[in-house]
Design a protein around this nucleic acid. Structure first.
Lengths: 160, 160
DNA sequence: CAAATATATGTAGTCAACTACATATATTCC
DNA sequence: GGAATATATGTAGTTGACTACATATATTTG
């Protein structure tokens, strides 16, 4: 078993390792959509999937839902609007709000994607259902961090 | 237990989830160095730590070691050179090669960082030693992907 | 041993997220 | 009900990784 210096440094490099794995999975995701002949970018997934499930949302709620800063959401929405996959209208009650929803084209695309998700889910399950389940581990870690941040935990040791 | 749409989509969003967690840990990492009064950016870690452990390396080997594309390494090296934490010289045998090493300042900085790593390791252990160990899960997933890529696994289902 | 190929480094530009700041509209509270 | 505050959206610029391409030097091969 070959071992490089970063792997050997173990916990110190968690962030780097997470990043690398995320990139790898994202790139393969793009290739899978291509294999199905679907013109779709993985980065669109969070926004489109959320609108598919929740139909209409304003920019900030959508950002909160997917866990992005709102400017990131805005630039995705700009792209998706150009692709005519979403449209938006003013909220008549609160005119600050912009309400976003899928177009017919968007809904149609999402429907054709359901079989792809099925494949992605199966392939991901294969990969993550090892002794330590990655998705469960992420959930557990996020739960711990929500309870007490990384910095707060470190501070306990600093003060000793 | 609140549940947002993306979390509910489970496996579909692994890449997004990994990304988010990585960012969160990286940001907290920066704060910890600050708390110790150390002028250090987490992104420098892979390069500096590798040079600390292996003393002298050329650009490509270093990139392979830390798992980065070489232009990424070059731009980090440029920064580190400006900070006078590393220096480089030509390989006399193979003049294409640029040999990189820590300066005295670099070595000194890395020494002062050892106690910080200790804190980071402890805090990370606290977070990742849940029922499903995150580091072990990452190792297991990377091992599966090395054996057979995500795309190859998906293709099996596509062809059915 | 010269031509073809491979390797090492470097530059330029892209990408997908971010933060900081600006503006418009709602809400709250003296 | 006007001033202060909070919220919603938007723009500009940054960041930390990437790919594609360019060039110089080594190595291999006909």
């Amino acid at each position: 078993m070959e071992q490089n210096v970063i792997d050997a440094s173990g916990l110190l490099a968690v962030s780097t390792r997470l990043q690398r794995l995320s990139d790898q999975i994202r790139k393969d995701g793009l290739l899978i959509y291509k294999a199905f002949g679907i013109d779709f970018q993985p980065k669109w997934f969070p926004v489109l999937y959320t609108l598919y499930k929740k139909s209409t949302m304003n920019v900030v709620s959508l950002s909160d839902e997917i866990g992005y800063a709102h400017p990131s959401t805005i630039s995705l929405l700009k792209e998706l609007e150009k692709e005519k996959l979403i449209r938006s209208k003013k909220d008549k009650v609160d005119t600050r709000k912009r309400l976003v929803e899928l177009t017919e084209k968007g809904t149609a695309l999402l429907s054709t994607m359901e079989p792809v998700w099925d494949v992605i889910i199966k392939a991901t399950a294969e990969i993550t259902n090892t002794q330590n389940n990655l998705m469960k581990a992420i959930n557990e870690v996020e739960a711990s961090l929500k309870e007490k941040s990384f910095l707060q935990r470190a501070e306990v040791y600093i003060k000793k």
